[in-house]
């Protein structure tokens, strides 16, 4: 039986047109980009908007910039486009890694980076990695343009800081000059097909043998993706050692993360894995920064 998932679908071709439709329809509209999360929510009745605004025709599918100057990625760029980007493979492989492990091949073809962020899942791959990269979200809406730091964008599971009729148009990753290391550890049971039980992303810019800049972002261990500030404090400015990475893992697991029991794992298991995942992400990032893999 054909069961339509909404009453009407709009296909704007400009961002302004999309904002106008969203403004007119108010709460009774949902944006669709890749659809791999939204359609499931529609089918399961989690949300029941009368109107769907399909933004796939907006000119937001692009990957621009460089590591020296920063990257701009359009919101409807798919995980497939990111996973196959020669530029990103060379200059920001951690994002390619997040894209490859986002889901199965069929999901990767459709899922977009903007959708992964706006779905506001605390487990989302791109969000987890982008949080460690100090990413900025570019937003357009009826009251004009604005920016938000990704780490401040989330209010809770499924809840973003977007106001009525606003659209995320671009993801901006600031410049990462010089030597750096970045690593994403996603712990799952069915590899690509599973949502992360724990995700840990680390970015390190070394200062000789010391940890210069460090960011550790955690997924699936809180109501939103979060920055592990206690882990950062342990690492920042210190001479690197594997014991230091171990301490950072311990701090992240004990002080930064919070845990729930759910269908994917118990809280106790998540805590053990967080400690290991953070340690591994930090070790891998340091190794890359020092010219390793």
């Amino acid at each position: 039986m054909v069961a339509p998932l909404a009453k009407e679908i709009f296909e704007p071709e400009t961002v302004e047109e999309a904002i106008n439709i969203l403004h007119r329809k108010g709460e009774d509209a949902a944006i669709i980009a890749g659809g791999t999360d939204l359609i499931i929510s529609l089918r399961e009745g989690v949300i029941q908007p009368a109107n769907i605004v399909d933004i796939i025709k907006l000119p937001l599918n692009y990957i621009k910039g460089s590591r020296a100057k920063g990257f701009q990625i359009g919101a409807t760029t798919t995980a497939k486009d990111i996973s196959t980007s020669g530029l990103l493979k060379k200059e920001l492989p951690i994002l390619v890694d997040a894209a490859i492990h986002l889901g199965g091949p069929q999901t990767i073809e459709l899922a977009t980076i903007g959708g992964n962020i706006c779905n506001a899942s605390p487990c989302a791959n791109f969000t987890n990695v982008l949080a460690a990269l100090d990413t900025v979200i570019k937003i357009k809406g009826p009251d004009g343009d604005r920016e938000m730091m990704l780490k401040d964008f989330f209010r809770g599971p499924g809840i973003t800081g977007l106001k009525r009729a606003e659209v995320v148009t671009e993801i901006e990753i600031p410049a990462i000059p010089g030597a750096y290391g970045a690593s994403y550890v996603k712990h799952t049971l069915r590899k690509e097909m599973d949502i992360a039980i724990v995700g840990a992303a680390a970015l390190i810019i070394p200062d000789a043998n010391k940890v210069g800049k460090i960011r550790v972002a955690l997924g699936s261990v809180g109501a939103t993706v979060l920055l592990a500030e206690n882990a950062r404090k342990i690492l920042e400015g210190k001479t690197f050692s594997s014991r230091l990475a171990e301490s950072a893992g311990k701090a992240a697991a004990e002080k930064d993360a919070s845990y729930i029991d759910d269908v994917r794992a118990s809280a106790a298991y998540r805590k053990k894995i967080t400690r290991i995942a953070v340690k591994k992400a930090v070790l891998d990032a340091w190794s890359m920064a020092k010219g390793g893999k």
Binding site: I9, G35, I39, Q106, T107, L110
Partner: peptide, 8 residues
């Protein structure tokens, strides 16, 4: 190749 259940 896409899942036709997740395409409108």
């Amino acid at each position: 190749a896409v899942n036709s259940c997740l395409l409108l």
